[in-house]
Design a protein around this nucleic acid. Structure first.
Length: 107
DNA sequence: CTATTGACGACAT
DNA sequence: CATGTCGCCAATA
């Protein structure tokens, strides 16, 4: 599977760069991430950006959730996302993040 | 250039 | 609380 060269748009780079700052055991939202990428209204576009996820294990894409505490999506399957989150000590109940406001990482 | 497509968000019902 | 509608944005066809 080699990809030759990985080319990212400026936007994607900004998003991924912001995302890698999110500490383990905490989560951020698409919206906050958009803010971190200096495009406060591009939450949707952020979802598309992380979906490409070029640096799979390198960047914690699983720590990105919805602004209402919902899980959101995941390229490898939402269920997988939940598993990993649990592994980091984040509890998901009824498709929602417990203590969401406490562990939310804001930019 | 226009149209379509989403791992979204806010608000109304 | 669950759904639906509309607005937003960048990437792609």
């Amino acid at each position: 599977m080699k990809d030759g060269k990985i080319i990212l748009t400026f936007f994607e780079m900004a998003v991924l760069d912001a995302l890698k700052k999110v500490p383990r055991g905490r989560v951020t939202t698409y919206k906050e991430l958009a803010k971190g990428a200096d495009r406060p209204r591009a939450a949707r576009a952020v979802g598309n950006a992380v979906n490409k996820n070029p640096f799979a294990p390198k960047i914690p894409c699983h720590r990105v959730v919805k602004s209402d505490g919902g899980i959101g999506g995941y390229a490898a399957g939402v269920n997988k996302k939940i598993d990993i989150l649990k592994k980091e000590g984040i509890i998901v109940k009824n498709n929602k993040i417990l203590n969401f406001k406490k562990i939310l990482f804001k930019f």
